[in-house]
Design a binder for these strands. Structure first.
Lengths: 84, 84
DNA sequence: ACCATCTGTTGTATATTTACAACAAAAAGC
DNA sequence: GCTTTTTGTTGTAAATATACAACAGATGGT
């Protein structure tokens, strides 16, 4: 089907929380190397795993994952503050 | 990893649009039988496919997919109209 | 400098998703 | 009622996601 690569903010969000891959992995119920694969965007998470990540960070899927490259959160914030 | 089953509203949304599985399949770039599998919730779509479906229906992922059984859209509407 | 933890990388095995073919049952058009 | 389209089902094969092990390099604390 020619899967598109999905971009994500997992590593930024994880670092904001100050937790290691191993800790995040345990929280979302996967192997810690799997978190590495996801952060490096070497493959896409399953929909269920995307939901778990979304639940853990308490953010909607669309804020964490995107079909288009994600800009730094700081830029997004700036745009909002400036009213786009 | 013990994947959870993800519930979805694909068949309702498709029927609202009055299109067949074959037509939807073509729009989102999969085999028409794959749409059948998804509607029957026999397996979860990949994250990319979930995004394509979300893009096609022009609705956020969370409105189409959920880890918990989805109530009929009519009920959701009622709740909103009644102010929860 | 040493030790522990974290991260990146590679390789193999298993599970899940998708495609595709075939056919039966149901629904829709005429 | 007949024909076409749609849907459900089963089976097999391919692609993708996940687990797990091993190891090297980086980072951090003491």
């Amino acid at each position: 089907m020619e899967l598109r690569k999905i971009f994500n903010r997992i590593s930024v969000l994880r670092q904001e929380r100050g937790i290691s891959r191993k800790q995040l992995a345990q929280k979302i119920g996967v192997n810690f190397q799997t978190v590495g694969y996801l952060e490096r965007e070497e493959y896409n998470p399953s929909l269920d795993l995307a939901f778990r990540i979304s639940e853990y960070f308490n953010l909607p899927i669309n804020l964490i994952f995107s079909t288009k490259p994600l800009k730094p959160l700081s830029e997004e914030l700036l745009k909002l503050k400036q009213g786009d």
